[in-house]
């Protein structure tokens, strides 16, 4: 092997070490993904939207005309509600948008996941989730636990109970948070919906 070739191999060794160093550097590149005082406001919840419906009580004749497995004293038709969500931070509107239930017919739970960049420090957060449609529900269906002593009284009571349960599991027509607090740097402020309490809560680290 000539001197030139030996020198080439030596340089090759150095180049190999440099290549390994580059490989490691590429594998562990520190990337700045946010500034040091950055924070995030995260809205995240899943909840059933309200059902906007009108109900009417079937007569005995109408009920008898239904197949046995479809006999319900109160028949309700309608749709699931649409909500407007508005987020303001220190008076500045972050988002003003419409959200609705999932699925092609929007009859599934409404899922929300939004993130907004915040600066650390004292911030006023205003969040409002308001049903857009007017409520056309017939209260008659809600309070129709008929105590007439008819043969269908139990069924009717059960139907009313089911409607009340569904209603209690759905979003209220208006949810609001208006609070001022200190956002720590590099933190995520989470706004979520607690189904059991039917309210939005704001969680900070």
């Amino acid at each position: 092997m000539t001197t030139r070739a030996v020198l080439g191999r030596l340089v090759g060794g150095v180049a190999s070490i440099a290549t390994l160093a580059l490989l490691r550097a590429g594998s562990l590149t520190s990337m700045q993904t946010a500034s040091d005082d950055a924070a995030v406001l995260r809205l995240s919840w899943s909840a059933r939207p309200e059902r906007i419906e009108s109900c009417h009580r079937l007569s005995d004749t109408e009920l008898a005309a239904r197949p046995a497995h479809m006999r319900m004293r109160w028949e309700c038709e309608g749709q699931f509600a649409t909500y407007g969500v508005t987020v303001r931070t220190d008076g500045r509107v972050f988002v003003s948008d419409t959200v609705r239930g999932g699925g092609l017919r929007h009859d599934r739970s409404m899922h929300v996941f939004r993130e907004f960049a915040l600066r650390a420090g004292s911030r006023r957060i205003e969040l409002e989730l308001r049903r857009i449609e007017a409520d056309t529900r017939s209260d008659a269906a809600e309070s129709a636990a008929v105590a007439s002593g008819s043969a269908d009284a139990n069924r009717e009571t059960r139907e009313a109970q089911e409607r009340r349960t569904r209603r209690s599991e759905s979003l209220p027509s208006l949810l609001r948070i208006d609070t001022t607090f200190t956002v720590p740097p590099r933190s995520v402020v989470l706004v979520t919906y607690v189904v059991a309490e039917r309210r939005l809560v704001l969680r900070t680290p």
Partner: peptide, 24 residues
């Protein structure tokens, strides 16, 4: 000689301003 370090566990309620990214 230069093993890859292990960063801290992911925290969903924290913003990591710097992340060691594998560019490949």
């Amino acid at each position: 000689l230069a093993p890859s370090p292990l960063a801290g566990e992911a925290n969903m309620l924290a913003v990591a301003p710097h992340v060691a990214v594998d560019l490949f």
